[in-house]
Amino acid sequence: MKLTVVVYSAPYSSQAAWSAYQFTRAALTAGHEIYRLFFYADGVHNTNSLSIPPQDEFDLVKAWQSLIAEHHIDAISCVSSALKRGVVDVQEAARYERTCNNLISDVTLSGLGQLVDATLVSDRVVSFGA
């Protein structure tokens, strides 16, 4: 089945982001296709490479990064949600004259149109954490 996963919640605030990660991993293991992974609203914090959990805690941002890279998942962080919350890529950092960028690799900043497109193409859209 062709799935799109939407993540609304930040890591370390609620279980939802972990559930989204575990669902995505389980779906891939079961042979489903992840058409798109869309981080929206507080969900963009999942793509902040400056997140540093204590060593004895699960590093969710790193785990997302590995999963996305390993399975070549089309992963999008909503650009307007991300900029407001201080998650920027190289281009946005340059555009707004900021001194650093922090979007994890293999994730793209893009608009809600990507979510609508994914909704139309996917067999199921599964949301976590509203």
């Binding site: 608009g111 809600l112 149109g113 979510l115 609508v116 497109d117």
Partner: peptide
């Protein structure tokens, strides 16, 4: 609201 407007645009 933003999602609704995006869907409507599509």
């Amino acid at each position: 609201l933003d999602m609704v407007l995006s869907a409507a645009v599509f």
